[in-house]
Amino acid sequence: MSCTDNKTCTCTPAGSLPADGEASPGIEAGRRAFIKAGGAFATIALTPTVTLMAFGGGKANAAQESLDPKARWGLLIDVAKCGTGCSECVSACQKENGWQDTGHPETDAQWIRKVTVKNPKSGAVAELPVMCQHCDEPPCADVCPTGASFKRADGIVLVDKHLCIGCRYCMMACPYKARSFIHETLIDQKPYAPRGKGTVESCTMCVHRVDRGEIPACVESCNSTGGGAMMFGNLNDPQSDIAKRVAELTSTQLRPDLGVDPGVHYTYL
């Protein structure tokens, strides 16, 4: 990923980032630039916070026999409530899925990260979690030569690691830098999150939990010990809390101009 227009990039120095394992300042700069380019940042913190209910709208299919093809699972993140320096979502994801910082930021897996953005004019700073955006038109799936990158019928974008040959085209194609490649042999993985050397991975929206009717680990921890900024639910169900929120608030997606229609929405960004 690169800055399409470097002149408009204004980024916070890397030193001001929360210590949760950023890839590199260069990557960081580009990432902030694209978030800024989304143009929605100016609205930050101008309005009082809206309370997002814990466990909002997660009526996932508990039958276990198959996914619900009519659903579109998504996330709504209230940036105004995302705590400065809080990384509960990141540690919950690490614990659930068994990835961690090993002190090699260039190659460590990162399923979710905290990103700090700054409005260069007003100086306003915000933090937000960024993970796989679960696009409706996922570029990763478009470029995958083996069909390993795909979108489930319920909108969750996954890597079928059984088909992944580790070519990493998807990592290049992803505008959100949401994917990681596993460089080292792993042992003692989590039974519900198999991971192995030579394959690409990213946030699965905790598909193993969603399939049994639970909500993703990051959302759960954000609502119990974090700022209560994350909501999970079915965007296609007009009765769900998340769909109602998205309908009544001005939310944005990251880089909506790309037309990939992410399933992750942000408010007060």
């Binding site: 026999e65 198959s66 996914l67 079928d160 598909v207």
Partner: peptide, 21 residues
């Protein structure tokens, strides 16, 4: 079972590798 689970979200325990293990 692997394909059913990953692509169609089939989580019935039968033939799940975790169950064998």
């Amino acid at each position: 079972k692997r394909d059913l689970t990953v692509h169609e979200g089939n989580r019935l325990p039968e033939f799940s590798l975790n169950e064998c293990i």
